[in-house]
Write a protein that binds this DNA or RNA. Sequence first.
DNA 1: TGTCCACAGGAAATACGGGGGT
DNA 2: ACCCCCGTATTTCCTGTGGACA
Length: 416
Amino acid sequence: MTFDERIDKKIQRSAASSIIVDHAFLDDEQLSKDQQLRVLRDIFEQNIREKEIDEIIAHFAPMLRKQHPFHLSILGKTGTGKTATTLLLLAHLQKAARQKELEMRYEHLDLSTPRPCFRAMNDLACLLDASKRYTKGISTDEMAGRIEEKLANYEGYLALFIDEIDHVNQDLDTFLKFLVRRLPQAIPAKLVLVFASNNLTWRKDIDTRVKSFLKLNEIIFQPYNAMDLQKILRARVARALNPEMVDEGVVEKIAGLASREHGDARKAVELLSKATQLADRHGTRLTLETVDAGYQALEVDSYLEFVKTSPEQLQAALLAALEALEKNKGNAVPAIDIYSFYEKVCQVNRISQLTQRRFSDLLMELDLYGFIRTKNVSMGRYGRRKEIDLLIPPNVVERIKATIQLSFTAEVSGAG
DNA sequence: TGTCCACAGGAAATACGGGGGT
DNA sequence: ACCCCCGTATTTCCTGTGGACA
């Protein structure tokens, strides 16, 4: 058999037995705006999120009567549909407003990755086309001025949807002070702020002077239950997969796993996608076992993805911690010992070496992300220290180490 | 009960590099 | 080309502390 024939045969076989009809519907990032809306319609037509939809519409009702709605705070865990629902409704409201000859626009500021006040402000400015993207060198105040300037001539309703507001990790007060107190007075538009957060208490420690100005309604999105998730997954399966190839109980199993753990629709779809990938690669049906395998693979993936996208220094610290723990057979290791491993890692890979003080912060970060656990231990007369032990499942450790090593060597050869 | 170790971690200082103004 | 301003990252400095030991 020639090479060409072999390839043709492979292509045909994979086409014939394919589970996947349209892969895009398993990955939102591949979907066009239009298709995303179609998926949402599929879901909302099954009476999911009915209550929340009613509440949001009720909140904006005054606008259609030419009054000024309060601000709105939407709370709920990740993947409960806050963003999707809100965006869909804002689009509808805009249409409704137009029919009543009201001017209304909305903007969606997505803070899905944490960033300081300045960055958030810069992103908002970019969104409004009021400024380019800066790294530094310009004051937060100036940024605020540009935003105001840009909006100086707009007199209609302006809904600013600030998504994941709690991700503003420095000077949240400054950001809110601008949005809540300064901006409404500086621009002629009728401003309606819509905050979304997965932290129910995000307003707990903001400046009281800002808080008193911040009159808001609150809407809570409950996590999806297993029934909802089944409906959501079925909608995806219908669009993306060949139903012949999906075993009975697969959707129920994924929905069950997801609702038990988090009720996060995005993750449920991710699991469906991963399991499908595996089944497709092996040319098998989508079975309950494949779902289990997908579940495992997803866990590993998320660790590796996180490591890959971390700053170099954090990777070095993690590598040092893993090596130190390995040498100590998994027993807790004091931070100072890990530091000497870290020194070695830096020398070998030609990475600039940070002080112990800073290194200690890196360890705290790793703790925050759930890679390790740090514990303060007092040894009485013999001082105190921080001990570290491992939280990563052992079967992932080697792959994480390999990933970090790889990114270091790539860095060195790429630079040199 | 008080002492005092040896480090954790807060706060201030400093370094860095982009950006505007001139 | 120069200076000064800015946000961010890191270093330097130093105070605070849990509990074994005496």
